[in-house]
Nucleic acid binder design. Structure first.
Length: 585
RNA sequence: GGGCGUGUAGCACAGCUGGAUAAUGCACCGGCCUCCUAAGCCGGAGAUCGCGGGUUCGAAUCCUGCCGCGCCCGCCA
């Protein structure tokens, strides 16, 4: 609890000095107490034992006696060698209700460019890719909650083999060809018959099969290779045909993402950096570097071993035929990004770790900073890795549809009085929120296996739990407004020093909102904020249990003010996590 | 083989810039709707923190060795 710490640190330091200890250690040692029932802040006294030649237990006791009081301090105790400080709930309530949860903290607003998703537009958005989009979008929202200006950017891979395959297939294969080739595979879901991403992926999959199995494969490879080559040399006509092939697919993917509340401020096409000459001049610059090397066929690389890269140290950026590689274009893209913003964050799968390092080291070699990266592990199916190519996927469209259907079952079971339309609205909100939450809730670097029963969990520890607490708060607001009738002014109140546990617990939870958010922003770890919002919901439920805002004819103004603060904090936190905020459910 | 990551109750997952009794959810056992939405609340049971060494007053957390799992090690994207 930074709020309490800033208020009491000088007293702790003074007390320590008074008994002869090293006060410089307090800053790093004074920390949030793990045993929450003991206090909000704790100072372990073990490190002082040697210098003072006393036991930690007696040092803690002496400190407790030497501590000068402060209005923010509720009580102080010394247990097992720890000096524990508990916040004064009345002071805290006053502070939060006048200043708000951001503690009046000085925040330097930054401008941040976050690139995420950037999936190849060759088929419907599937769950394997979802972690990137959901983590990225959540990071964008969290930065906005903190007050930063954010540009969310999608880097469109509009050249290279994947798009070339799609473009070739749409041109060379008839619908009958495609269906004949894919015979025996699972039939497409008729629900998405009119969605172009679901249609066109059939051509892509058929082409991949042909490339692998057909006897005419060499010719196909040649045709596709020619397209790739042309695109990489900036052939406008080919690039246009590529765009015609992938754009409807991308639109379909974006429709799916939109259903999850994920949107982008800008789309930047990879090919731009080829056609505008940035890539060519970049390659010239790289060629002049001291660590540049030439292969026999004229290909060029940087030897990044000199810059600390381990393993294979040669990083190729130019092919023998003079064309660029994906990573080369990525470097050009990053140089451009640095002209757009002074803070860059990329969301990347763990398979990009090596390349991100190569790109980062090369940027440094060029005198540019390297971007920050949030890496995540892939979502796998119990049967193994997902792949559009092999048709071994769970499409996000299907997951969301299933989530909605299952949520609708729950809603109509619990609220038989709701009409069909309300059920559908609630089910959509619950379904999409639950899917998002179950993905942000786990730390990105942890491997993740997709299981339907987890993705569709609607109970405590999931999005609906949070949504439910929020609707309770909304319901209270409605009831109070109704009660106040023609006189809608918020009731005046005095803060009653006699506070139930649930109330104190809620205030303490509200007080650490910004501690958590600050850390989450600094370390790119959205799951910690998801956990915080869960705690806040839980604390609200405890408050709801202990504090009746409407008691007979009376509105308890103090409780109502706390409820409203919790409601708005939940509301903004849910927005940051992409959880829908329903007023009834 | 090398690099990076990961291993915590039956399952899932938090804690990892060292600090008290390892948090939470599911599943399991028991209790709570004449009272602001029970998608909730209260209580119980369940953990050799992968294994071995080391550093420390103190190790899930740091160091080291081993084992399992994942990703990467293309003039692909």
């Amino acid at each position: 609890m930074e709020l309490l710490k800033t208020n009491v640190i000088s007293r702790v330091e003074a007390a320590l000095e008074a008994i002869g200890g090293d006060a410089d250690l307090v800053k790093s040692l004074l920390q949030p107490a793990r045993e929450a029932d003991q206090g909000d802040l704790t100072l372990p006294c073990f490190p002082f034992a040697k210098a003072l030649k006393k036991s930690p237990v007696s040092i803690a006791e002496e400190l407790r006696a030497a501590m000068e009081n402060h209005e923010s301090i509720g009580d102080i105790n010394a247990v097992n060698g720890y000096l524990n400080i508990r916040v004064n709930p009345v002071w805290l309530a006053n502070h939060l209700l006048s200043v708000g949860v951001d503690n009046g903290m000085e925040k330097a607003k930054r401008s941040v460019l976050i690139e995420h998703t950037s999936a190849n537009p060759n088929g419907p958005f599937h769950v394997g890719r979802a972690r990137n989009a959901i983590l990225g979008d959540t990071l964008v929202r969290l930065h906005r909650l903190w007050g930063n200006e954010v540009t969310a950017e999608y880097y469109v891979d509009d050249m290279g083999k994947q798009v070339a395959v799609l473009a070739w297939a749409l041109n060379a294969l008839s619908r009958d060809d495609v269906e004949a080739l894919l015979e025996g595979r699972e039939a497409p879901n008729p629900l998405w018959a009119s969605k172009p991403d679901h249609q066109r992926v059939r051509w892509y999959q058929a082409a991949q099969l042909l490339r692998k199995e057909s006897e005419q494969s060499p010719e196909i490879e040649k045709a596709i290779g020619a397209l790739v080559h042309a695109s990489e040399n900036g052939d406008e006509a080919v690039l246009e045909s590529f765009e015609a092939a992938y754009q409807p697919v991308l639109d379909g993917m974006l429709a799916t993402l939109g259903r999850l509340g994920i949107t982008y401020d800008r789309f930047t096409k990879e090919s731009v950096f080829v056609t505008n000459g940035d890539v060519a001049s970049l390659m010239d610059e790289l060629g002049a570097l001291a660590i540049n090397g030439h292969a026999e066929n004229g290909a060029q690389y940087l030897d990044l071993g000199e810059r600390g890269l381990k393993g294979k140290t040669e990083f190729f950026y130019r092919r023998g035929d003079g064309s660029s590689l994906y990573a080369t274009r990525d470097i050009a893209y990053h140089r451009w990004k640095w002209t757009q913003s002074n803070e860059l964050i990329n969301v990347l799968g763990e398979d990009h770790k090596l390349q991100a390092q190569q790109v980062g080291l090369t940027l440094e070699e060029l005198g540019e900073p390297r971007p920050e990266v949030m890496f995540y592990s892939f979502i796998k199916l119990p049967e193994g890795k997902m792949s559009t190519r092999q048709g071994n996927v769970v499409f996000m469209d299907d997951l969301l549809e299933e989530a909605k259907a299952q949520a609708a079952n729950v809603v109509s079971e619990r609220r038989p009085e709701y009409d069909e339309e309300s059920v559908a609205t609630i089910a959509e909100a619950v379904g999409t929120s639950a899917v998002r939450f179950n993905i942000v809730n786990v730390s990105p670097e942890k491997g993740f296996t997709f299981r339907w029963e987890d993705a569709l969990s609607f109970e405590a520890g999931s999005a609906p739990f949070v949504m439910y607490s929020h609707t309770r708060a909304c319901s209270i607001l409605r009831n109070v407004e109704q009660h106040l009738g023609a006189n809608p002014q918020a009731p005046e109140f005095t803060i009653d020093a006699n506070m139930p546990d649930g109330l104190i617990q809620l205030l303490r939870t509200l007080a650490v909102h910004d501690d958590c958010l600050e850390k989450v922003i600094r370390e790119h770890r959205p799951h910690l904020f998801a956990e915080y919002i869960l705690q806040l919901s839980n604390a609200y439920n405890g408050f709801y249990r202990d504090c009746h805002i409407l008691d007979g004819d009376e509105v308890n103004g103090f409780y109502f003010a706390v409820s409203e603060l919790a409601r708005s904090t939940l509301n903004s936190g849910m927005e940051a996590l992409g959880i829908q905020r329903l007023e009834t459910m």
